[in-house]
């Protein structure tokens, strides 16, 4: 059974000018110990998906429908206090897009860490300090004792992200949601963080939901990838299949727009504009930009259906399967 099973998740932001339907039926699942990538253009709802799972949306966002199943419990309908005591931190924890802003600027790194250990793991002051040092070492922070007294603004971006990872690991969660953990870091540091995440996965066996718009990063870390377009999953499958033989026209466009040289695939450009979430296009949300679009696309929303082994696609006119893959798979 999957560790986390998200089905038909709907999240809206209620602005004065109307309801912004950011997530419109997102479904995905993560197995224990697996790294699932969630990729998509900026504004497609990747971060909102992450925050919807643990119900940490900012005002005026709200989950309006769907299920988030964790150990047979539906997180969408759990009491806030249960979520707080039993899920957040202990089962699912998160690391964020901008690590320095995610850390409290007026509290030392040590206090932020020991506070969590004392409150969430019931340690006393001494134990918490020792454990904090141990955790900092495990994320390869040199001289952890003196780092405990630092304030976030004294840290480099990579260091801040390591501290953030240390915080997220402090209660030994089974799932780590990493929201663009490497944006804003220089290439070397990005690489180090990637290695660290991979090692942590191997060592602790925790699952990771890796959110990114960097396809190269996804390729380095993930077992499977889900592609998000305008609040819906367009395609999902094992990384090798999906990258070699994308079946959804959007995935194909994403891959085609990726810079060929170098590791980074930072800026994705696909002709046309991202869907307006206030008045989204009917049927398939991608149809105004889709080369394969036909009559039916504007009218009917394509369901997410299994196609090739382990691959699921939401498209009326999928791309043809690549030959080599058909032969081998």
């Amino acid at each position: 059974m999957a560790l986390l099973e998200v089905s038909d998740l709907r999240t809206s932001f209620f602005l004065r000018s109307g309801e912004l339907r950011v997530l419109d039926g997102v479904s995905l699942e993560i197995q224990a110990g697996e790294v699932l990538g969630l990729v998509g253009e900026t504004g497609s709802g990747k971060s909102v998906t992450a925050y919807s799972i643990t119900r940490l949306l900012k005002q005026p966002g709200r989950v309006v429908g769907g299920e988030v199943k964790w150990d047979g419990r539906d997180l969408v309908r759990l009491w806030e206090s249960e979520l707080e005591q039993e899920i957040r931190g202990k089962e699912i924890s998160m690391i964020f897009q901008s690590p320095r802003e995610a850390l409290n600027p007026v509290i030392t790194v040590g206090r932020q860490l020991t506070q969590v250990l004392r409150i969430r793991r019931g340690m006393d002051r001494r134990e918490a300090r020792a454990e904090a040092i141990r955790i900092l070492k495990s994320v390869y922070i040199s001289d952890p004792e003196s780092r405990l007294d630092s304030y976030p603004h004294e840290l480099s971006g990579g260091m801040a992200q390591r501290i953030m990872i240390a915080l997220a690991l402090s209660c030994q969660p089974r799932l780590l949601i990493a929201d663009e953990p490497t944006t804003g870091l220089d290439v070397t540091t990005q690489h180090q963080i990637v290695l660290l995440l991979r090692e942590l996965r191997d060592r602790t066996g925790m699952a990771i939901l890796l959110i990114t718009h960097d396809l190269a990063l996804a390729a380095q870390l993930c077992d499977r990838v889900a592609v998000l377009y305008a609040g819906r999953i367009a395609e999902m499958g094992p990384i090798g299949h999906l990258f070699r033989s994308p079946r959804h026209p959007y995935t194909a466009a994403l891959l085609a727009s990726r810079p060929r040289l170098g590791l980074q695939g930072d800026i994705l450009t696909i002709p046309g504009n991202v869907a307006n979430l206030m008045r989204p296009p009917g049927g398939c949300r991608f149809h105004p930009r889709c080369p394969n679009a036909t009559q039916v696309c504007a009218q009917q929303q394509p369901p997410l259906e299994p196609m090739d082994p382990g691959q699921r696609v939401a498209c009326h006119n999928p791309m043809p399967q690549r030959q080599e893959l058909a032969a081998s798979g």
């Binding site: 707080e84 931190g89 924890s93 802003e101 995610a102 409290n104 506070q115 997220a168 402090s170 209660c171």
Partner: peptide, 21 residues
């Protein structure tokens, strides 16, 4: 509404601690 408050909440710290500390 800040990011660091969201971090504190994501770690399961009690609301009282999040608000006051």
């Amino acid at each position: 509404q800040s990011d660091y408050v969201r971090t504190a909440r994501s770690l399961g710290l009690p609301f009282r601690v999040v608000v006051l500390r």
